[in-house]
């Protein structure tokens, strides 16, 4: 048995930068290695954007908060956003010209693999482990992303006690494997999850308060993370991204006519919330999605 006093462990768990100092500040430096971090949000909130940004910032050297590492992107939501990825890769190349000299292409260090079912994921897990052990790539793999876990489970299982039991046993199996891989290779695991609407009174199985927020709101609806309580027990920390549409009325200054003309604009306000994490208190932060990726807004 590996007996260790804490002195031999590094004081600070290695963290992977999100690529934005403001967000990193709220996350205690980034996403920790050796743990499973879940990102929960409705579609169009920026889950996949954040993941794409992570696979790129993982390639940065540790002086810039990266892991100098390649990453594995397992996706169950189709199609894989390769155009957006190459756009972000170009942005990364242009900001760090000195680091990445021409033959280097960030896309060479992102291994993308589709997932179709939960069983498929379990089958792949074996291959992933042997791939990590025998990897001959120039950069070691230090980040595994699964986008998304919910898509794998939403169709296959019924809402009967037996199926739910089978499903939660599957969750723990997947999580157990991922955690042991994360520990063995000291890599970060990021899993995205969908949300489900809460209908009716917020009691019952799904209305249960999990974590710092009494309830999760996005687009004016009360939601909760998909896959229930069993899955919530499988992840080490959970991050929630919310979005809200907002009308803003701006006086149009370019028109100096007699009639007051104004422009109505829709703006999406996005926030990142820490729902629970062993090392972080609750905090939240507004962010925007721009061409270069996700950027937090300092208040």
């Amino acid at each position: 048995m590996r007996h260790e006093t804490l002195l031999v462990r590094p004081r600070l768990t290695p963290k992977l930068t999100t690529g934005c100092p403001v967000l990193d500040g709220h996350l205690g430096g980034g996403l920790p290695c050796g743990l499973i971090t879940e990102i929960t949000a409705e579609s169009g909130s920026g889950k996949t954007q954040l993941c794409l940004q992570l696979v790129l910032s993982a390639q940065l050297p540790s002086s810039l908060g990266g892991l100098s590492a390649a990453s594995l992107f397992l996706h169950s939501e189709f199609p894989f956003p390769s155009r957006r990825l190459s756009q972000l890769a170009q942005a990364l190349l242009s900001t760090h010209r000195s680091l990445f000299t021409p033959p280097y292409d960030p896309l060479d260090y992102i291994f993308v693999h589709p997932l179709h079912t939960a069983d498929h994921l379990l089958d792949e897990m074996q291959k992933i482990e042997s791939f990590l052990e025998n990897s001959r790539t120039r950069l070691p793999v230090k980040l595994i992303i699964i986008d998304s876990i919910a898509a794998l489970f939403r169709s296959e299982f019924d809402n009967t006690p037996l199926d739910l039991k089978r499903r939660s046993s599957m969750f723990f199996k997947i999580s157990g494997r991922l955690k042991s891989i994360a520990k063995k290779f000291d890599l970060a695991v990021v899993i995205t999850n969908q949300v489900v609407d809460l209908v009716g009174p917020s009691e019952g199985a799904n209305g249960l308060r999990v974590g710092n927020l009494r309830s999760l709101y996005t687009s004016g609806r009360q939601v909760c993370a998909a896959l229930g309580l069993a899955w919530a027990n499988c992840v080490n920390s959970r991050i929630f991204l919310s979005r809200d549409e907002e009308f803003i009325t701006e006086a149009n200054e370019s028109v100096h006519g007699s009639d007051e003309s104004s422009i109505h604009r829709m703006r999406t306000r996005r926030r990142l919330h820490i729902v629970f994490a062993p090392h972080l208190p609750y905090s939240s932060c507004e962010f925007v999605i721009v061409r270069e990726g996700i950027r937090g807004i300092e208040r």
Binding site: L6, R9, R11, T13, L35, I36, N236, P278, H279
Partner: peptide, 11 residues
Amino acid sequence: TEGSFMVERVL
């Protein structure tokens, strides 16, 4: 058993 034990929090 879960990996949630973090040295920085202990400190």
